[in-house]
Design a protein around this nucleic acid. Structure first.
Lengths: 353, 353
DNA sequence: TGTTAGCACTCTAACCGAATGAGTGCTAAC
DNA sequence: GTTAGCACTCATTCGGTTAGAGTGCTAACA
């Protein structure tokens, strides 16, 4: 069966109508469109063909049609291809209120990402999800030991990509301030610039040798460093706009709402599932669309997810995902994400200067 | 109308039955109880009285009765009073899996609080909520400036109660390492031990005087300190177990679920509402129960909230709240919270040593 | 050969009325 | 003071009917 131009028009018309209403769309509705002034009977014939091709289905015998995953896929691929062709269409989307983010001093990247998730959620009416910055090859930038109270020190660990973690260490022994300074110096000299793999036994042995009596401190600091690295490995995830799923009845029927909200709350599973999605094609914009069953999270098989990868330079990167019903407005979501990514690039480039 | 012993027994029986089933309870059900072996007719007479007293209502004419807020209030007050009398009843609650928390090195208080919220939620099947540690009179413990890259420094601000915040500062000028160290020293000398109010213009003037050329750095650091203090003022809030509300149909009918989830996601409002709840009576355990309309959050008027205050010493404290339907198991919740608080005290005392 | 009108058919959603049953309030007897 | 009995109320359930949306098919039309 051939998918000629008219069939494609009808398919798109069905998809777009269904996006707006959420109701199965019938032949009469389509035949009223400017573009497709045929009688309902003609449309019906075409629809029967589209159904045979697996692009649309009827929920029950006497209902209108709704798109299948395959139908959406066709639609999305076409749209992405067209967007790639006309690179800057300068569509008049309502500008995202990103100025706030830009003007504010960004002291912590993660805070900004959370804020961004909120803005995206409010703007799209879908749920958003951001994985924290992450790098398989992140390196230790430096660390800083400071005395706190008797027997307690603060160890600040800074990884490449401005990932900063605090650790309060309880020591059994006490340590002089000057000794701590020296330890600080030694540790930085030995460890700065190394990745987790590079901090091996020989480095550690050297360190303990040099540290002399304060081996306990060294090993606790090393533990803290290791934990910081490994925490980096388990993608932290922020979500926003979870309640937006209630806008879409097809996502909230039965226990679905509960399951979805649970998944969003158990961010860990979510993070590793989404985080592990590799961008298959090395497109520069790096936007991926997962429709229905393509989503690698069970409770989201009725959803679509659009992801984009942001990069902080130095190999540190993370993902932004937008989760909505399969009938989400892919066009708007993809464009909003693209805009967001260029904003982000602007911010990070500015920071990098 | 007098509330005699038998009426009270019946009220409690209604409450406890309704807790289990969530269905209005009728006279037959009550009359089958060991304790209340009267005919349904007798029970009905008593129920009519209880209804007249405003302690129970029927949802519709031919239905059983459910407790009113006033009824719950009576029940809860009695229970709390009895618990106060017999201080350590050593009820055989399934021990909370707090050992994990105890044995793990706690490097960040907030992480532990989040974990605790999760455990509580899983254990009670209600939603939990924790406000981060907070103090109106917290003081600057110390701060630590470290060089990062050209023109960027890391300022770690530590407040009393081990509240640690990182700030990455972008400088217009560059600064030598040794100069930074000196600034670090000066800032600490002048600021350590001061509260937000105590860092006034005269202190700042002195500082800028002493700092000489590096006024920009000083003022940016001061900004960071101010922000850390003020962030402290806007209670951070963690929630867990939000999906548990789906277990209780009376909370999920209509748009209620959506509203509740939204409230939980917008943690700020929640935080200030809950955080501002003062403990009216200075009871040592400091457990408060808010029933229905007593809850100061609009979307939670169908819920009850039980809160407890934890304290990290030094005036730093926060609140733990358990949110559930009005028919929640107050007994279990209060006991679980008490147990949790004593665990917490154990942990913090240990840390304080 | 593509398009359209007409028609029988299907299925859902909404509505209706009767039956069911849980539970009540009241009265009168114990 | 307690209880048995009874009439009554009301939510829920179920079957049956209807209305409406939409389809598929056939036959006529251009």
């Amino acid at each position: 069966m051939e998918l000629d131009e008219r069939k494609r028009e009808i398919l798109y018309a069905i998809i777009e109508n269904y996006q707006e209403t959420g109701e199965p769309v019938g032949s009469r509705t389509i035949s009223k469109l400017e573009k497709l002034k045929f009688s309902p009977a003609t449309i019906r014939n075409e629809m029967a063909d589209l159904e045979e091709m697996g692009l649309i289905v009827q929920p029950h015998t006497s209902a209108g049609r709704i798109p299948t995953d395959k139908g959406y896929r066709l639609y999305v691929d076409k749209m992405l291809a067209e967007q790639a062709k006309e690179p800057e269409k300068a569509r008049d989307l309502p500008a995202l209120p990103m100025q706030d983010l830009l003007s504010r001093r960004i002291d912590r990247v993660e805070e900004m990402l959370m804020k961004m998730a909120q803005i995206l959620a409010a703007n799209t009416n879908y749920t958003t999800m951001v994985t924290g910055p992450h790098s398989r090859k992140s390196k230790l930038k430096f660390l800083q030991l400071s005395p706190m109270d008797k027997g307690r020190i603060l160890a600040v660990v800074v990884l490449s990509g401005d990932i900063v973690k605090n650790n309060i260490l309880n020591l059994d022994e006490e340590i002089e301030n000057s000794e701590l300074m020296e330890l600080n110096f030694i540790l930085n000299k030995r460890l700065t610039g190394l990745s987790l793999e590079e901090i091996n036994l020989s480095v550690i042995a050297d360190l303990k040798n040099e540290a002399g009596t304060h081996m306990e401190v060294v090993s606790k600091v090393l533990d803290a460093v290791a934990e910081t690295f490994s925490k980096e490995d388990s993608y932290p995830v922020y979500t926003s706009g979870a309640p937006n799923i209630f806008r879409y009845p097809e996502l909230t029927g039965g226990d679905r709402a509960s399951e979805l909200i649970s998944t969003l709350e158990e961010k860990k599973e979510l993070g590793s599932a989404i985080g592990s999605l590799t961008s298959e094609n090395g497109s520069k914009q790096d936007i991926q669309v997962y429709i229905g069953d393509e989503v690698p999270v069970d409770s989201m098989k009725d959803c679509s997810v659009v992801t984009a990868t942001y990069s902080l330079g130095d190999g540190v990167q993370g993902k932004i995902g937008i989760i909505g019903p399969k009938r989400m407005n892919y066009q708007k979501v993809v464009e909003t994400l693209k805009e967001t990514m260029s904003h982000l690039d602007g911010i990070f480039l500015k920071t990098e200067e």
